[in-house]
Design a binder for these strands. Structure first.
Lengths: 229, 229, 229, 229
DNA sequence: GTGGTCTAGACCACC
DNA sequence: GTGGTCTAGACCACG
């Protein structure tokens, strides 16, 4: 069965995600956070879902304390929302969170642009090519993935560990955003060209134009999401 | 007696910092992190100092586990360095960390500049005035504090919670940096003019110039620190 | 426009008091008690007002159980009156409550005088000065606040935690008293001199005279309130 | 068997105290507080003892929540000490607590003296007579009880409910103090004369002398306890 | 009843 | 021996 025959792939269950990972209790905290992060960004956990500590700890086969440490990590990534004495919930991105997220992305990506020297960027070129292949084959998830790859690599090219760390977290949040709304098949298509244009500006060393272009690009993207929340 | 020996007070001991806070075991983790953060930024703990878990836990009157959570928080703020199976050390900012820190600051402050509208900024003006008072009275710590205030408020003016949170953490790291090197009395003096110039660019709405000016400003500052490490 | 309409600001609403505090439900009981205490002492809740548990719990965004705990605290401070099976009411100080309150104040302040050593009391001097400024500017609330400050600090100077705790609570009740009757602009004026005289007796170490003076002072004050209830 | 044959009477057990009260669960909180207060002041619970919530709730046949409310009341009476996240302990009076307690007693009893009119005080006379009987029969606990009665009635004579309420609580704390140290058989003997002298001063309306005498009286008593802690 | 915090203690791995 | 991780269990606080 071709997974692409449906543009909205069937979401996996939390149990299946647990099953396909190795419950090696040596690093249970990191493992639990990974499982939950995957579950969230793959749509196995709907935004707003309440996560019961006791039940989930038992389901994952870890102690409540360990699970709470995982929650702490996920909360700092804005993937979960903690309401004191009420519980932990899968984040439901609102207009404010979207605005904050894109503000951070703009700062990070602009900061990266500042640091990137002119010249050919093979890795970006490869990702653009990849995008075009996915677009041709109609793979929405492929395009989405390539788009994320592009922006991740853009920041990684800056050589700054901190910017990169923050960007990786921001992109995980983006994935949550994708799953929190109805998928629109051609949403990612225009990004192929936008990314390509941005790449050209970068290679040409035209930082000012790249910055301005990125700002408008992200602003329109943010507006798109904000309108659908 | 050298006036600088009084304007730079003798560093407090860790015990004195513990004593002047209330060791109310209701929020021991946060309390311990605060105590250690204060100790570090006040110079009670020299960079590179190894912190023994067992000894420190007993000194603070908390359990090892709680202390470790405080370490985790401080490590994420780059105030401490964890070496697996070796221990936790007060961070010794090296050239790389300084570079990373200023890279992040540039991204955050530039991102903030993008969001700040033109027009008078009373809070920045007040801080600038404050700086001048401190400079006139020869208060090095006063100038340093006002400089931090200026950049903190600059980012706060953006209205972005995330940029602000990251900036607050970055400035705590800056304080560690100050204490990790010999104080140079007139180090902060030129910042008064630089900040004032930056403020004028902001108020005029000249974002591009502000960005360029900030970049050079931070670059020279980073170089200053990197040369003294 | 009557200057007193401005120097006595319009009483805030309960909602506005709720809004300006951070409803961080981590310590909802304490928070609710604080909000209600503030509302009462600022006049947002008139004496005698019945407080509906259900409605108030919803308005504050907390559960009824939590609200009841706050009521318990406020009742022990004599700021609220509980009538079994009838409900909770904002205390309506009567002659007896006024008499009891001033009896307690006399005991506490006399007890404090016993413990205070002779010698200059800078903090009291500062408060007296403050009173005079407020009197000159015609600020009734300023004078009232300074008067409270004077007596609070008088007890604090004793160094006894228990006397201090009881005094703080008694002064909160005093504020309720102020708001339960029509404001008389020049009510607080004579207190400036009385407090100053008391301070001089204290500084001179004349405890007996101070005690006698305080007794008459509080008796006349109590009579004033009792006559207007 | 004459209970007075031993100057240190056998302490009752908590269970026996529970048994002799009526477990009327209409006011379980108050009942539980009474049981615990009695247990503490009769020596059934040694100072420093940790009170386990779960175990004690079951032993008393009440819910943990109810028990916690009782703890709250007892803590406010300084009979128990709460260490956040550690538990509740029977208070272990230290020098500071003793000093605070006697400071409060002085304030309350002096405040009462201020309010008491001259003239014969039959109730005090009766208590003094009672003391003498106990002293003659060598009943230490009888003397102790009569001493407490004398001071309680002294404050009650003031007619102030608040002073009385605070005094009752202070005397309960005094009983805890008696049980926290080795009994000294003739400790209470001199109080018979002291109380009698104080009574005479009161009846003569000599408030100033009564106040001075009381102050020295309580100071020596406080010193006695403080030295034995 | 559930979440929030801390403590104690176990086990393993590295030095 | 010291750090790294997890578990168990207690108390704290809101619902």
């Amino acid at each position: 069965m071709n997974p692409e025959t449906t543009s909205i792939p069937l979401v996996p269950t939390l149990d299946s995600i647990v099953a396909r990972s190795t419950p090696d209790h040596a690093f249970a905290t990191k493992w639990a956070a990974d499982v939950l992060r995957t579950a969230m960004t793959e749509g196995a956990l709907d935004p707003g879902t309440k996560l019961s500590e006791a039940a989930l700890a038992q389901q994952l086969g870890i102690s409540r304390n360990t699970l709470r440490q995982a929650f702490t990590a996920l909360e700092s990534e804005h993937l979960m929302t903690r309401v004191p004495n009420r519980g932990v919930f899968v984040a439901t991105p609102g207009k404010k969170q979207i605005h904050e997220l894109f503000t951070l992305r703009l700062a990070l990506e602009s900061g990266a642009i500042d640091l990137i020297s002119a010249g050919e960027k093979p890795i970006l070129r490869r990702i653009i090519e990849q995008s075009k292949v996915h677009r041709a084959s109609g793979s929405v998830s492929g395009m989405a993935g390539a788009n994320q790859d592009f922006h991740r690599e853009l920041v990684r090219l800056s050589g700054s560990e901190r910017l990169n760390t923050l960007m990786v977290s921001a992109l995980a949040e983006m994935r949550l955003l994708f799953h929190s709304m109805v998928a629109v098949p051609d949403f990612h298509s225009p990004f192929v060209e936008k990314n390509e244009h941005l790449m050209h500006l970068l290679e040409a060393g035209d930082k000012y134009e790249a910055h301005v272009y990125l700002r408008d690009y992200l602003a329109s993207s943010a507006a798109y999401f904000a309108d659908r929340v």
